[in-house]
Design a protein around this nucleic acid. Structure first.
Length: 855
RNA sequence: GGACGGUUAGCUCAGCGGUAGAGCAUCCGCCUUACAAGCGGAGGGUCACUGGUUCGAACCCAGUACCGUCCACCA
């Protein structure tokens, strides 16, 4: 076993790269579907090929890596499957922008050449994310890396499309959809971002009695009716009559429709079925014609003076024309309303009547809701399940066709006579048929991710073994659209088996003030920058330390530095242990000291608590627990006590040290994989901590008596340190002291106490300048001069005040009949004990104050 | 317009019915032979507000006020 000399500071860059490469080379992250171990599986939510990983990903990945590393150590056959999403519209936009730089549009290249360009671009830049994942230390099975446009996954897409088509769950229809006039494609509801925008509401007189208000005045060119509420006394008599639509001269009917809110505005609504989803529904109910007055670019197409104008040019032009005719009743006024924008390019979305493919989601969504309702899939934290239900229980049909070139082409072909044929993976369309030019929404293939990546539709060993996956980790922001889609497709394709047993949701990463990270605000942190400066472990630890389930994570450089310091602390603790010959081995025949038994006992509690927190995805708790155990207990106390034991020649200390560090490093490994690997190998001589077993509680080491004994030592030491500090004694300055330890709980620890407190044995000239007691122990100290009586008096008075307050409080309780009658016995007992303690403290402190020389 | 979450030390957050906690920041003292990315000590909070339940409330209930997030077809 080699015990190399370690430098005094941990340098992450020296170990991270080589460790990661070794892990991959050794195949530790490879998952074997043929093994007999219990399976544990996670699929990585595939990042967009266009993207780079941001802090949100880093959090996501840190959690998944921690979960899978722990389960691997616990002996599970662990699969963490990586991959990327082709991100249709986003990627197409990126490549189009690059083309624009060359003065080209995708149409200049043509479809085939353009798609070729996208693949090229993917080949060039797709490796960036893999690089980032390696830097983070993600223990993924690279041999199973997948891409949503892979041959296998494309096959899965085509298979499920055909199945849905054959089951009548996919249909083609003319509907109002969200249209991006810049991307020239349909968007699903989730690809539309709503913001509160300032618009202008104008009121237009259609007739003497009918006045309508609108923020989109230009759409009046496409009006085919005016609607009023059927019960509205003001207008009931008009239903069935017509008005003349200004500027066009068209006669349009007045219809009665429940949708109209009589209390809003004038109670009259203009109806534009081709350009507004509500109006479309009204139109359907009343068999109104639809007039499309705008093309796919948002340019007005109706005849007249407005033809050829962009929608935003047409708006004021229409208003001006109306004003000229005296038909603007109320001047336009600012009006805050919700406006949809394309999530990719931020262009204002135009509702547009269009022929598209849809998924009938009702039966699928019902099943997706039921799987959570009956507990086949658990959502964590459970409060968020309600949002999930809100979403799946009220889902609109899903528009899946996109007028893009990058994506899975819709496998439907049209015959010369208008025949429609859906073609499965191993089939081909009849001669003379033409394929639908559109591609599928990116989320269609993402929805298959948990099983398409495992080889579906083939019943592969991977699918048998790793589906359903154990847990899905993602931010609560995309719970609905992505998780719900995977649930729907998973249940549908896998005979009612949901894609995951648990959905674990985390919050968003925010800056140190809890503000959202945004480019425009300039508070975005690049995880790679932190990895460079603080190390991957520190970056991960910082994120996990803030990861309370379902709530946001605020991070700052100070936290990252603190995490780096923690890693360094582990480094130096191990360095100390190695310098003192720590090693691992059986503790069975050892004569353990109280300090040994104390730290071993504490370790068992910590293992149990860490396990409990892990099971509940309480990563912040795990991190906090291990941080304090490592730093406060192992480093600040046990190592200090161990120094004395080693000096006393207790060789068993080296084994206990080795034992504790071994276990501590293994507990920490899921959170901070690199530093623990390095140190663990040095301590144990083992091959790799990645495949080391997870610590289990050993009840033989539970030792409340030893814990109480060491706590007493800690109390005494802390009290005397306070005295020393108040008296201005330098930490290193040795002073003589007489300790009355005989018969006390800490009698066995004199050497340790003297060492920790720099107290020497009293010499012949010993002259106590201060006397006090801590618990049972009397302390006399010769400070080699007069003590600072003022400081000492202050200290004692403060303690006395605390004790008196405590006594008062407790006396109040004990004197309260209701309390005595109703409080549980253990509480009363505790209060009594506090009363006794307070009384004793008061007596002792008063005596000490009285004995203090005047000063 | 709905739903959910939050409001605790200067900052970020734990605690969720029986003596108010952590990290960072602040102040004081230290290169005490693992670590100055460190060690020891200290200061700092009527737990948003108002009521209620209870022997007892930061914690449970109701309401109010701000903040945040998601959803929604408000012309």
């Amino acid at each position: 076993m080699t015990k190399p000399e370690l430098p005094t500071q941990y340098t992450p860059a020296d170990v991270e790269g080589p460790s990661y490469e070794r892990w991959v080379a050794e195949g530790y992250f490879g998952a074997d579907p043929g093994s007999s171990r219990p399976p544990f599986s996670i699929v990585l939510p595939p990042p967009n090929v266009t993207g780079v990983l941001h802090m949100g990903h880093a959090l996501d990945h840190s959690i998944m890596d921690a979960l899978s590393r722990r389960q691997r150590m616990r002996g599970h056959e662990t699969l963490w499957l990586p991959g990327m999403d082709h991100a249709g519209i986003a990627t197409q936009n990126v490549v189009e922008r690059r083309l624009a730089g060359e003065g080209l549009s995708r149409h200049d290249l043509g479809r085939e050449a353009f798609v070729e360009r996208v693949w090229q671009w993917k080949a060039e830049s797709g490796g960036q994310i893999q690089g980032q994942m390696r830097r983070l230390g993600d223990g993924v099975d690279w041999s199973r890396d997948r891409f949503t446009m892979d041959e296998g996954l494309s096959r899965a897409v085509q298979t499920i499309f055909k199945k849905l088509f054959d089951d009548g769950l996919i249909y083609r229809a003319e509907r109002i959809i969200n249209w991006c006039v810049r991307c020239h494609t349909a968007l699903s509801d989730i690809e539309v971002e709503h913001t509160e925008d300032e618009g202008e509401l104008v009121s237009i007189r259609y007739s003497d009695e009918v006045v309508v208000a609108t923020t989109r005045a230009e759409t009046m060119l496409g009006d085919t009716a005016v609607a009023v509420h059927p019960e509205d006394e003001r207008y009931r008599h008009l239903i069935g009559t017509t008005v003349t639509l200004p500027l066009t001269g068209r006669e349009i009917p007045i219809v009665g429709d429940e949708h109209v809110d009589p209390a809003f505005g004038t109670g009259c609504v203009k109806v534009t079925p081709a350009h507004d989803p509500n109006d479309f529904e009204i139109g359907r109910r009343h068999s109104l014609p639809s007039i499309t007055m705008m093309d796919e670019r948002g340019v007005i197409t109706t005849h007249g003076p407005f033809e050829g104008l962009d929608r935003f040019e047409a708006r004021p032009a229409v208003v001006a024309a109306l004003r000229e005719e005296g038909l603007i009743v109320a001047e336009k006024r600012p009006y805050l309303h919700s406006v949809g924008h394309c999530s990719r390019c931020k262009t204002v979305v135009e509702p547009r009547l269009s022929l598209q493919w849809f998924v009938n989601v009702s039966p699928l969504a019902k099943a997706a809701g039921d799987a959570v309702r009956d507990g086949r899939t658990r959502i964590h934290p459970p409060e968020l399940a309600k949002r999930y239900f809100d979403w799946v229980d009220d889902m609109h049909d899903w528009c899946i066709s996109r007028q893009l070139w990058w994506g899975h082409r819709i496998p439907v072909w049209y015959g010369p006579e208008g025949e429609v044929v859906c073609v499965g993976p191993d089939e081909s369309a009849p001669e003379g048929y033409v394929q639908d030019p559109d591609v599928l929404d990116t989320w269609f293939s993402s929805g298959l991710w948990p099983f398409s990546t495992l080889g579906w539709p083939e019943r592969t060993p991977e699918l048998e073994r790793f589906y359903p996956t154990s847990v899905l980790v993602t931010g609560y922001d995309i719970l609905f659209f992505w998780v719900a889609r995977m649930m729907m497709f998973g249940l549908y394709a896998m005979d009612g088996e949901p894609p995951f047993r648990t959905v674990a949701l985390h919050g968003m990463v925010r800056d140190q003030f809890g503000k959202k990270m945004s480019k425009s605000f300039g508070n975005v942190v690049d995880p790679l920058d932190w990895i460079d400066r603080f190390g991957a472990d520190a970056t991960r630890f910082t994120l996990l330390r803030g990861a309370n389930p379902g709530s946001d994570v605020a991070v700052s450089e100070e936290w990252a530095a603190g995490s780096r310091n923690f890693c360094n602390k582990l480094w130096n603790a191990t360095r100390f242990a190695l310098m003192n010959g720590a090693s691992t081995g059986s503790l069975d025949d050892l004569e353990l000291t109280a300090a040994d038994r104390w730290i071993l006992s504490r370790l068992q509690t910590v293992i149990a608590q860490a396990d409990a927190a892990f099971e509940e995805f309480e990563f912040a708790k795990v991190a906090d627990l291990l941080y304090h155990f490592a730093w406060d207990e192992v480093c600040d106390w046990y190592l200090e006590l161990a120094k004395v034991q080693i000096a006393q020649g207790r060789d068993g200390t080296r084994l206990v040290l080795g034992h504790v560090l071994d276990a501590l490093l293994r507990l920490l490994h899921p959170l901070v994989p690199f530093v623990t690997e390095e140190l663990w190998r040095a301590v144990t001589g083992g091959e790799s901590i990645v495949v080391a077993p997870w610590p289990v509680v050993d009840k033989r080491y539970a030792d409340p008596a030893a814990e109480a004994e060491i706590e007493a030592v800690q109390e005494l030491v802390t009290e005397v340190r306070r005295f020393r500090s108040d008296q201005g004694l330098k930490p290193g300055q040795k002073v003589a002291a007489r300790l009355g330890l005989a018969g006390t709980a800490v009698a066995a620890h004199e050497a340790a106490i003297r060492s920790l407190l720099r107290l020497e044995e009293p010499g012949e000239a010993f002259a106590a300048s201060a006397r006090f007691t801590v618990g049972q122990v009397s302390v006399e100290i010769d400070t080699a001069g007069a003590i600072d009586v003022v400081a000492e008096r202050k200290r004692l008075e403060k303690d006395l005040a605390v004790a008196r307050k405590e006594a008062d409080q407790v006396a109040g309780k004990l004197g309260n009949e209701q309390f005595m009658a109703k409080a549980p016995e253990d509480v009363v007992t505790k209060v009594r004990a506090r009363a006794a303690q307070a009384a004793a403290d008061i007596e002792r402190l008063e005596a000490q104050l009285a004995a203090l020389p005047a000063g």
